[in-house]
Amino acid sequence: MNRFLRKSIFALALLLVGAGMAQARDQVKITGSSTVFPFSSYVAEELGATTKFPAPVVESTGSGGGHKLFGAGMGPNTPDIANSSRRMKDSEFENAAKNGVVDITEAKIGFDGIAVAQNKDNAPMSISLEELAMAVAANVPVDGKIVPNPYTKWNEINPNLPARKIVFYGPPTSSGTRDAFEEMVVEKVCGKIEGYEKGYKKIRQDSAYVPAGENDNLIVQKLSKDKDAFGIFGYSFLEENSDTIQAASINGVEPTPETVAAGKYPISRSLYFYIKNAHYDAIPGLKEYVELFMSEKMIGKDGLLKGIGLIPLPDDARAKIREDVLAKKKLTLEDLKKK
């Protein structure tokens, strides 16, 4: 037993020394948005399967968490790429610059529609963006005054809508999908309705909006049981579950790849990833990963990522962005400030 003890202490010491020495990294590391995660990991797998490079490690931390890790500094202990379901924020860019991450390239990869969907047994529902905002916002105007959302049934908002209880299952506060939804629904109708000036974007916190966790499959399952409810989630889940759920039309437009790409469907957003250009030389496979991701085979009009729910950019925009990314165009604060 004494010998065993000595051996195990020796092994332990060896392990720690080994850990301290292993600094270089031969694997691309990616972190960020859970919406971009399926696309990013698909490309990662393809790189691993078709080249000599090991498949990159893709972590799903949410956009905000991803930018935080990405902007924490340079070197092998920080991620090479941050996935994001929204543009980088000014504050995130400044924070990254402060930590020495100055040479960043932005890659826009396509669109994601956010569907407002319900059980397929229900009659199809068509609502306007304003009506949707009135149903989900925390504060709404009633008779010229801003009050906490009083609506419990759809026909209270518009008598033409059914007398159905308002229930939403949607993403929690940590989610980029929720940020995007608040911006594209509530914030957008601010100023368009009398007495509803700018500055409102929060989603209601009462029982009409149930935060259902980051797992969109759970929301889809809830819809099969709760027929009053609407679920808020990414387009790919709608496509995959079209036998049990259907999307509501917003302003008369249903979410389809065509309507989203053409900008007709109002609740859609762009997806991005951000690259540390200085890591190109140090990390093997990074260049190949970025090239593969930006290739027509992946994000093209009939690319592989379309098959799993990414909505491709228009042809000319795609070509322009590909050129910029491959030329390692440096992102500036001015770029982020202009919309």
């Binding site: 392990l15 080994g18 850990a19 292993a22 694997q27 995660f37 990013s40 990991s41 990662a44 797998e45 691993g48 090991p54 498949a55 490690v57 893709v58 972590e59 799903s60």
Partner: peptide
């Protein structure tokens, strides 16, 4: 909790 396809090739 991430997309990690390959087996670990060492403790680090």
């Amino acid at each position: 909790v991430a997309y990690i396809q390959d087996m670990p090739r060492g403790v680090t």
